[in-house]
Nucleic acid binder design. Structure first.
Lengths: 362, 362
DNA sequence: CTGAAAGCGCTTACAG
DNA sequence: CTGAAAGCGCTTACAG
């Protein structure tokens, strides 16, 4: 149809339809009054020359790009992969596309990523904050008019919507299950990133009823562990609460190995996310422990493989896809002008009892 | 620093630095001649008012957005999640960011996605084509000057770079291993999407030496299976070559179940991607078959869980991250003006012998 | 080395 | 209902 090297512009449409550029624009954008007949001519011309609006030019004026930025720790992790799928599904439905960035939990990287996304003029941001205390760059984005929705973590230092699961309830239920089976020594493998030593000490302290707002997912899940013990009147042995040396499978394996080879080892083990689950399970394999005979085991995240091992793993399931959908939905509402109080959306987890947990042998 | 609701523009920089907008632009873009002193003033002004260029405006003129579009089947699948991570890593390194779209292997969705990405003026496209025969939209993108790099699949109908593993060699090696162990009845669970019946028949036909160009990954892997048999002088029983009813775990489970419960069942089973592996392995579990006693099993893709089951799975490993990196690297080269002949980059797979395969019992 | 001016491709008050 | 004109925030020949 059109030979000129460059794609047709709205001027070409106007010329072919024999109207002004302004009218062509209105006809295409269903904006202002345009007669039906004129609109038809413009549409025909558009069709004829294969015109597609240059979204860059449009965005310059409308100050809307119809794209959102997603800042996550690592798209290769099954959790974020699932969440991001939910985000893109919902975003697409609402007419947005998605810019993706990984941070590997590094705040400096995150800061840079946010700056870049702002430069690209994304209409909103969904982020799993690397550090729930270092969020000025996110506050900055909000001030510039770019809404932010947090996922997986909540920050008390940021006035933003957040979509997470009910982390406290999740592990509380898991541990209650184990306590109900008679377990009294329950180990837990958690990740390192509780930012300050003081918070760590504090977490194990007396104040179990505090709001979870200031806690990252990992700490909140630990809190559930503690509350379940208190509710059952069972004292917690702090030495059973393990922090991994690094946030990866290897770190979790080491921590679990140490825990499971000590004297007076726990009769049950709980993990707090899918990376820890893989790591801890690896230690179980290495030590050739029998589940649930030697040890009861509770995993996190309902991934395919957890039903392929024998016995199948009892675990906490997070609705990954839905976390993403809800986050995207909330963000789109914000972009559309919603300015109610920020909401914390706590999605429920499911506790799936399978074969890896059993009553303690007496 | 700046109070006006809107972010500062280059005009603000120019005013503060007491130069013209043109000079400010040149100083910031290291374009043309600017005196050191002037540049310093401009940089200082930029710093002072917190100026960040509006990339939209810049892109309008330069016709470069520094972003690439990634069109994959499903980011929630471990394979694509790994590949996309590789893409984003390499893209970021080169100064590009990444727009992500899922197609669920639907060509119509893919077409729309490509159109949208073109509207956003991405500088290039990386795509796992849903149908290697329906690629006019990709050819269209190329004609408009937007380079395309294929991943995971090669299309003989498109003159584009492609990054895949050596699919033929991958399964050829796996099957040779099994043949070497004395297996003579080797089942294979492949996916459905071989577009035409004729191709299917043809695949099992005599022409094993044809170029793999016209084949999707699935078919190419089947070809390796066939060639290994021929090389060993072992006839292929076509009834051992199974197509799943649908491309998902359930379909694979059904197919494997049927294969493993028939009379004269195979003594070994090979799968051709990670979805098929999960599905087939599920059938193995259901039937409570002993590996490798009752059956030798070869999986695909080296995911964490494959060493957590007992026995650990012998499998074909794909360098997922590297596939992504190479694709992004190639694309960036194209964007930078490289116009050599399209290259097909075949990355090697690794065959990892673990516990799920053993010599056939005689 | 620097500035005035045109222009990228649109949208949107403002008149008519 | 329609058009002429301004302008979004930049870059880039073109003069000087």
């Amino acid at each position: 149809m059109t030979e000129p090297g460059r794609p047709p512009t709205i001027r070409d449409v106007a010329r072919v339809a024999e109207v002004s550029v302004a009218t062509a624009s209105r006809a295409l954008g269903n904006y202002g009054r345009v007669s039906a007949e004129t609109r038809a001519r413009v549409l025909a011309a558009t069709e004829q020359i294969g015109y597609r609006p240059n979204s860059l030019a449009r965005s310059m004026i409308t100050r809307r790009t119809n794209s959102i930025g997603v800042v996550c720790a690592d798209i290769a992790s099954p959790f974020f992969a699932g969440v991001v799928r939910g985000i893109t599904d919902e975003a697409k439905r609402a007419g947005f596309d998605t810019l993706l960035v990984n941070t590997d939990e590094d705040v400096a990287t995150e800061r840079e990523a946010v700056a870049l996304l702002m430069d690209k003029r994304v209409d909103g941001l969904i982020v799993s904050a690397a550090d729930v205390r270092e969020v000025e760059h996110l506050a900055g984005a909000q001030e510039r008019g770019t809404p932010v929705v947090l996922i997986d973590r909540i920050s008390s230092m940021l006035d933003a919507d957040a979509v997470t699961v009910d982390d406290v309830a999740a592990t509380e239920e898991a541990v209650r299950h184990l306590l109900g089976l008679g377990h009294r020594r329950i180990g837990v493998i958690a990740e390192l990133r509780i930012e300050r030593e003081a918070d760590w000490a504090n977490l194990l302290g007396p104040d179990l009823d505090r709001d979870r707002g200031e806690l990252n997912a990992s700490a909140a899940r630990l809190l559930g562990y503690l509350r379940a013990h208190r509710a059952a009147g069972v004292p917690v042995d702090p030495s059973l609460v393990c922090r991994t040396g690094s946030y990866d499978v290897g770190g979790a394996t080491e921590a679990a190995r140490a825990l499971l080879t000590r004297t007076n080892r726990p009769t049950a083990l709980v993990t707090i996310d899918n990376v820890m689950t893989v790591g801890a399970f690896r230690a179980v394999r290495e030590l050739d422990l029998d589940l649930p005979g030697d040890l009861s085991f509770v995993g996190f995240d309902n991934l395919d493989w957890t039903t392929l091992v024998r016995p199948a793993l009892t675990l906490v399931e997070q609705p990954m896809h839905e976390i993403g959908e809800q986050a995207a939905r909330r963000l789109v509402e914000r972009i559309s002008g919603d300015d109610q109080e920020p909401r914390r959306i706590l999605l429920p987890t499911s506790f799936l009892v399978r074969g890896s947990t059993a009553a303690v042998e007496s």
